[in-house]
């Protein structure tokens, strides 16, 4: 397991990265934390002509709140922010607790020390945690090429297993999570055979409850049961406007299956993924509800 030959560029700026990507004819690949790319290189499943290392692009790292003056604004996580940093970030814990909960399930301490938030989004494994939580948080990504920067909601970003809307000449710049009004609760549940493994199935939920105890925000996303992480809009619609409790939630989950088209591998079959999606959705929603309070 030794990589094929490639050229290497240690980029110092975003401009340098996008220029390299632009000149690369699709043969140039961005190296962030390397926790997914390095095995692919070693197994020669990826054979880029050029590897652009973004670990020294200072502007690609960090977590901040933008547009805070207006009150809502957004939480911005730069792509090369380490998962370990994100996990420890008080800003993320405060403004996107769902993401903190999700990252706690990602890999192990050693891999989180290198792995990045953007790398996980760029790889787009259909069962991985960060894309799933971000999707449930109505997040956006920024993509930059030499032509400029575009913003894309995650709902439009994931196309399929390891396939996204990112063009070959674009770098994933940052993740943008809108700051939510009011109190919202977050729930994240997954099942994997061993702790720290890729999830077989995962569920992320956000619930908002107004002062009357009525649900005013519901987000539910399922990973590992489709070619990409999926929002379950039909369920969200039914939950919104309701006074929620465990019975109410359990009663609204029957439509999850219709939104999912799971595949099968040696870790689980399609029927398992569908049934367990519902189980985990219920757990995640209940956890979110409990946090949302009335």
């Amino acid at each position: 397991m030794k990589p094929a030959k490639f050229e290497y560029l240690r980029a110092e700026s975003i401009d340098q990265v996008v220029q390299a990507l632009d000149q690369g004819d699709g043969e140039t690949i961005v190296l962030a934390g390397g926790q997914t790319l390095m095995p692919m290189l070693a197994m020669r499943l990826a054979r880029p002509a050029m590897v652009v290392d973004i670990n020294h692009v200072a502007e690609l790292s960090g977590v901040e709140i933008l547009n805070e003056v207006e009150g809502d604004g957004e939480l911005v996580i730069m792509a090369c922010t380490r998962q370990a940093e994100a996990l420890a970030s008080p800003l993320i814990q405060e403004h996107a607790p769902l993401l903190s909960k999700a990252i706690a399930f990602v890999g192990h301490r050693q891999t989180r020390n290198r792995g990045t938030v953007g790398g996980s989004l760029a790889h787009a494994d259909p069962a991985s945690e960060i894309p799933l939580a971000a999707l449930a948080l109505d997040a956006w990504v920024s993509l930059r090429s030499v032509a400029g920067t575009r913003r894309l909601p995650l709902a439009d970003y994931f196309h399929g297993p390891m396939m996204t809307a990112r063009a070959e000449n674009e770098i994933l710049l940052s993740l943008h999570i809108p700051r939510a009004p009011g109190t919202r609760g977050a729930g994240f549940h997954e099942v994997s055979e061993r702790r720290g493994d890729f999830a077989v199935v995962a569920a992320a939920a956000v619930i908002g409850v107004d002062e009357r105890g009525v649900c005013d925000h519901a987000a539910l996303a399922i990973g590992g049961a489709d070619g990409r992480p999926r929002r379950i809009g039909a369920v969200e619609d039914k939950l919104r406007g309701q006074r929620l409790d465990s019975v109410a939630i359990a009663g609204q989950l029957s439509e999850i299956g219709a939104a999912l088209a799971p595949g099968a591998d040696q870790h689980a079959g399609a029927a398992y993924r569908l049934r367990v999606a519902r189980v985990l959705a219920e757990r995640a929603l209940l956890e979110a509800l409990a946090e949302a309070g009335p």
Binding site: Y8, M38, Q110
Partner: peptide
């Protein structure tokens, strides 16, 4: 491929997997 941890080293004091990093980095 980054699963077993036998190659763990401290990089600037932080544990990482040496098989998942290039020497040039």
């Amino acid at each position: 491929h980054g699963v077993c941890g036998a190659c763990s080293v401290l990089l600037d004091g932080v544990p990482i997997r040496a098989c998942l990093m290039l020497a040039v980095q």
